[in-house]
């Protein structure tokens, strides 16, 4: 039992706070609110928290626009994006760093490490990292490299006391691959929609609600 306060908390979500260094896999259908859930889990709770996005489905600028729309505080010294979409372009004005393709895992890893260092150096002692989504990497890159990439990201987040929130649409990968990837994470957040209501469930983490919890989304 830890008497320490959890480091990362989530406002207006039925997810209890988690310790520094935690990596979470968020699963759910792409159109079922998984994007909003991921962005909301990235909301900074104070100015010394940083937010770093690895964007593969939606480009960097759009990611920041959506983040802002949900109340995300966009301070570009401590918020930035590694844009892995095909259309991605560098944009210094909003700290977006383009990689050019989700097949370029080496480039994505280097931009991620570099941006993480800079956000840290700019005074963010805690950094929330959101990967939205992992699916394009799995589709375009060899399996071995995807494992290496995921281990590299989660490893850095773990030792740097960060928070990792990695989204994947189970419809885009086979079950075996998904369960192999899930092994690199401390816990899993499942999102589903039934009877027109969205619910989430937390698996694999201590001190969390153990059943499906209703969750309200704006979109």
């Amino acid at each position: 039992m830890s008497i320490q306060e959890p480091t990362y908390t989530f406002e207006n979500l039925p997810i209890a706070g988690v310790d520094a260094g935690t990596n979470l896999l968020v699963t759910g259908p792409a159109l079922g609110g998984i994007r909003e859930l991921t962005l909301r889990m990235l909301l900074r709770r104070h100015s010394r928290e940083g937010a770093l996005f690895v964007a593969a489905d939606v480009d960097g600028r759009q990611t920041l626009t959506d983040y802002q729309a949900l109340g995300g505080d966009v301070d570009f010294a401590r918020v930035g994006v590694v844009d892995c979409t095909e259309e991605g372009a560098d944009d210094d004005s909003c700290n977006v760093h383009a990689v050019g393709s989700p097949a370029d895992l080496t480039g994505a890893g280097i931009e991620f490490s570099s941006l993480y260092e800079r956000i840290h150096a700019n005074g963010a002692s805690r950094v929330r990292t959101g990967i939205y989504t992992l699916s394009p990497f799995v589709v375009y890159a060899p399996a071995k490299s995807v494992f290496r990439f995921v281990h590299t990201l989660t490893g850095r987040i773990r030792v740097a006391d960060g928070l990792g929130v990695c989204a994947i649409d189970p419809g885009t990968v086979d079950d075996q691959t998904l369960s192999s990837i899930a092994q690199a994470f401390d816990g899993k957040i499942e999102l589903r929609e039934s009877d027109g209501r969205r619910k989430i469930r937390v698996r694999g983490l201590p001190d969390q609600p153990d059943d499906w919890q209703p969750v309200e989304f704006e979109h």
């Binding site: 890893g109 490490s113 260092e117």
Partner: peptide, 23 residues
């Protein structure tokens, strides 16, 4: 060398850590 000067062509799968030496 900054990330935008690093050429990953043909090396997209190797995946490495990156640490800036000038920090």
């Amino acid at each position: 060398v900054s990330p935008d000067r690093i050429d990953t062509d043909q090396r997209e799968d190797v995946v490495v850590e990156y640490l800036p030496r000038d920090m």
